[in-house]
Design a protein around this nucleic acid. Structure first.
Lengths: 222, 222
DNA sequence: CACACGAGTTGAACGCGTTCAAAAGGGGGA
DNA sequence: TCCCCCTTTTGAACGCGTTCAACTCGTGTG
């Protein structure tokens, strides 16, 4: 009753083997049979612990998310302005993810499916999503923004990050330098937009946009 | 030499059967074996004409695009303003696509893959993409916009439409009324933003954004 | 000690998309 | 008529993700 450690051990062995093969061969070329053989278990045994091949990828996400969180903590400078922080956050993500660019495609292909457990909007990845949004919340610490926006901004910025990811996945330029350009030049734009959102002419526009965002639950799609 | 009509006949038979089964069963539940059997040919024969199951979906896209083009032509009012037209365009798309919402997911899951021939950014769907952008170009006929923006605006609006599609795919609200809300309320926002993009304070911001859009080739990802 | 029971494990089998060597047509010269 | 060559057609076979009835094993119970 107290220590069913056996199961956890097998579970860990399987997920570690899977992640290693994903790295070495990519997602599609890594077969469940290969994972099982390499881990010294049967195919059926892998399915005893993981409902599908996709579920094995969740481990990958978790690793990357944790690496990103650490990278951000190291790079968030207390007295840095919004633009610098946003740039740092996104570039940190890029650095963490770069090694996996060529086969990340195969993940996102599944992740875009609303029914997939890997979808960033699914209930299953709710924790990961919350953690990611929390990073954006920390990004805003000490930054002066329209209080009307403050509450929703972390989610909005997270959505923007999802957009950058989407571009990154499609980015075929060498070393994904186009994505770097996108980040370095769009972050200042967002910064300026944020500043401007408080001037009279734009204030009502901002308000309407935020209200729409809330009404259609853009970040609560699952 | 002059009339290899036989092949075209078989080809048409296969694609028609496939689309019918897609409608009746959805994409995943429609097997290549079922398509072949229903069309009275062998599986291999289907692969003689179509390299993969995905390629059969292209026919679906073409049908929907054509229906959307016609719907827009009927609804574009010569003296209507930008906002009305954009709203009309997007709602027309929604009406055309609504019947296929529940299994459109299965298409887009594949379409998001940059390597897929179904990707809206792929060379294979270049014609379809150009046609879609052309609709947005017609949308702008007679509309006064910043000349700096004019050239890129059709592509930018098309990208926005892709975003709406992405939301629609995930939209689980009854009859996708959330997507209707998104369209009806975001179109005016874009209209206002377009107007404002010419005032001094925003002009430089707009210019920078457009330049970034051009530099990273957002609509030329294939 | 025997037994039962649940957690863990097995591998054959299923249905799928896809491939390919081989066969079948079918029309234009000799 | 026969032959050739190219287009079209066939269906068995492959490898994949996934399922499941059957088996093993360790442990607590009578």
């Amino acid at each position: 009753m107290e220590k069913p450690a056996k199961g956890e051990q097998t579970r860990a062995l399987i997920v570690e083997t899977a992640l290693r093969l994903f790295r070495e061969l990519g997602y599609d070329r890594t077969t469940m049979r290969a994972i099982a053989k390499e881990a010294g278990v049967s195919v059926g045994n892998a399915y005893y612990y993981f409902p599908s091949k996709e579920h094995l990828v969740q481990g990958f996400y978790d690793q990357m998310a944790e690496a990103h969180r650490r990278a951000c903590a190291a790079v968030f400078d207390a007295d840095a302005d919004f633009t610098s922080r946003l740039t740092a956050l996104l570039l940190a993500w890029l650095d963490v993810s770069a090694p996996y660019h060529e086969f990340a495609v195969q993940f996102f292909k599944n992740a875009i499916d609303p029914n997939s457990p890997l979808s960033p909007f699914s209930t299953e990845s709710g924790n990961a999503r919350e953690a990611a949004i929390a990073i954006h919340r920390r990004l805003l610490d000490g930054v002066k923004v329209d209080p009307q926006l403050r509450e929703d901004l972390p989610e909005l910025l997270w959505l923007f990050q999802m957009g950058v990811v989407l571009y990154w996945v499609h980015d075929k330029s060498e070393g994904q330098r186009n994505t770097r350009t996108l980040i370095k030049r769009s972050a200042p734009l967002i910064g300026k937009l944020l500043t401007m959102s408080r001037v009279p002419g734009l204030r009502s526009l901002t308000r309407e946009a935020v209200q729409l965002f809330r009404d259609i639950g853009l970040s609560r799609l699952g």
